[in-house]
Write a protein that binds this DNA or RNA. Structure first.
Lengths: 216, 216
DNA sequence: TATAATCTACCTGTATGTAGGTAGTTGCTT
DNA sequence: AAGCAACTACCTACATACAGGTAGATTATA
């Protein structure tokens, strides 16, 4: 009993350590149980090394559980892939709620901050581009989930751009939809460019992106 | 003797078929021997499904040779990866030579044409973004080769943008280097966006990219 | 005691890579 | 020009490693 309670406390301590070094994408880390922790670590690995290069063993080692235990929560890898996409989508929705009353530029900056975080924390890709990169070799359900999530972000971007345009905060030529597309392409593109070109290339690209809403 | 000559003719016939269905990236297909054909098919697969998902067996089947024969030409997968990057770099150089005397916009259109070809032929990524996607799980030599190749393209873009700006063909704000960075991010970004968003999303992104050199 | 969480111990498939061999060609030497 | 060496382009067969996944037992918890 005592041994067990010590074990549990130590595990809890470890979890805190894990959380501290693997911050969430958009929001505070809410992983408390093993299942959430698996999703969190899975997302991390997928963004770093891709859906296919990631494997259960890596997570099992970090959580001090066995491979088979992960299958208990996620019978197939696809299940975990879908859970990661869904978690990221929820976190994105949470972010948009949090900045609902902020200025349009601050909304965009909140999204940019996520991407800057991705880059700094191990040159990660965002979840959408992670699955886009592997698009031709993932199941249809994952393709669909990724596409729907991408559409959600695109719609939010368009709405935010429209808002800033109508309030006079932004000024740009071309349609709101076109600029939303540019952001959708350039944000993951900046992460890719940052991988080969380093921090400076990443920063320049993000700064150029910011300029697109300022009388361009 | 006769049997052999028939065999050879049949093999030659097959090769023609293979070439017809796997066009090159920037230039005419020059693959004549097995080694070049392996590079060509390898590049194709890598752009479609990524460096790690691609495997020797797929090529072996298509070329009607055995797995081990590919190791004869490329002892390790890294060797083939490096050969693919180098081949693509050479093809890019060939493309730039071909359009050396063209107008700046035509130069950019030549590059765009490659990307439209990638998208239409199986939603491929470009070689640089293929290796960027797997950047954290490829060898240092491949990282370096990809980075150097990316730098080459960036420099060519900057030179071309400068050329068009000075001739009055283009008009844009911001520095030539910044716009080169935008192109470097948006072209692969368009391919990623096209995977989740389909042809329309890809086309819109590419069209937006074209607008960046026209009084933006 | 029922259920959840986790374990041990497997199986299957497959990818990279190696060892060693063969048939045919090219090139060198006398 | 004959004969041998060396090379090219493959082959068969195997070694190694590891990933995804399953079955059934065990332990902890409500």
């Amino acid at each position: 009993m005592e041994v067990n309670s010590i074990k549990i406390n130590f595990a809890t301590y470890l979890q805190v350590g894990i959380f501290a070094s693997s911050k969430p994408n958009f929001t505070m880390n809410t992983a408390q149980n093993t299942k959430d922790r698996i999703i969190e670590l899975g997302r991390n690995y997928m963004q770093r090394i891709g859906y296919h290069s990631f494997n259960y063993k890596q997570i099992a080692l970090e959580l001090n559980i066995k491979n088979a235990s992960i299958h208990h929560y996620f019978p197939s890898k696809e299940d975990l892939g879908l859970a990661v996409i869904e978690k990221d989508r929820q976190d994105f929705i949470y972010l948009t709620q949090k900045v609902k009353k902020a200025k349009a530029m601050d909304k965009l900056e909140a999204l940019i901050a996520s991407y800057e975080y991705y880059y700094r924390e191990g040159k990660k890709l965002c979840v959408i581009s992670t699955f886009s990169s592997s698009y031709n070799e993932i199941t249809e359900r994952m393709q669909l989930a990724a596409s729907q999530y991408a559409e959600l972000v695109t719609a939010w971007l368009a709405a935010t751009l429209k808002e800033g345009l109508e309030s006079g905060e932004f000024s740009f030529k071309g349609s709101v939809e076109d600029l939303a597309n540019i952001w959708m392409a350039m944000m993951p593109g900046a992460l890719l460019v940052g991988r080969t070109g380093g921090q400076a290339a990443f920063d320049r690209t993000i700064n150029s992106l910011r300029q697109t809403v300022k009388s361009s």
